[in-house]
């Protein structure tokens, strides 16, 4: 077992974990932050995307022990004081989701994208969510949602 201490959505958690415990399982099973999802085994689909020290990362491809000492933001930590994040608002306004399963990861990737490109072109948006699969929407409304958030900021 190994000790892990991470700050998740502003709150520090310390736990003894098996080294092989994936960060996504640590978040979901131990912290009960089930908004972060799992969609594949091979680091492609992006459903598990969270921010690790401010940058988007696939939490199914990181062991919890690797994240020791990191600041992590999950979808649950995005809204502040009961107010939706502009991206959450955008996804709602623009019908950027259907089944919603990819949505938390998609939104977390978009947070990183807008941090890097505050006024992204459509091309930059589509490339910026290259690591996130959505099987429902055909992506167009997701692009609109991110544009909405960019315009709002």
């Amino acid at each position: 077992m190994a000790q892990v201490s991470v700050t998740v959505n502003g709150k520090t958690h310390t736990a003894n974990v098996e080294p092989r415990l994936l960060l996504v399982h640590f978040l979901r099973e131990q912290l009960n932050l089930t908004g972060t999802h799992i969609g594949c085994d091979t680091s492609q689909c992006g459903a598990c995307t969270v921010l690790v020290d401010g940058r988007s990362a696939k939490s199914c491809t990181i062991f919890a022990v690797q994240a020791d000492g990191s600041e992590i933001t999950t979808i649950e930590g995005l809204a502040r004081d009961g107010r939706l994040h502009p991206l959450q608002e955008g996804f709602w306004e623009e019908h950027g989701l259907q089944c919603g399963y990819c949505t938390p990861g998609m939104i977390m990737s978009a947070v990183d994208l807008l941090n890097e490109h505050p006024s992204p072109t459509e091309r930059e948006i589509r490339d910026g969510i290259d690591g996130n699969f959505c099987r429902c929407t055909g992506y167009e409304h997701i692009v609109n949602a991110i544009q909405y958030a960019a315009n709002k900021r």
């Binding site: 680091s43 492609q44 992006g46 995307t49 690790v52 940058r55 988007s56 990362a57 696939k58 491809t61 990181i62 990737s109 990183d112 994208l113 910026g128 969510i129 290259d130 690591g131 996130n132």
Partner: peptide
């Protein structure tokens, strides 16, 4: 290489 998340790690 890969995608944005992969490039971040």
């Amino acid at each position: 290489i890969g995608d944005p998340q992969v490039r971040n790690r």
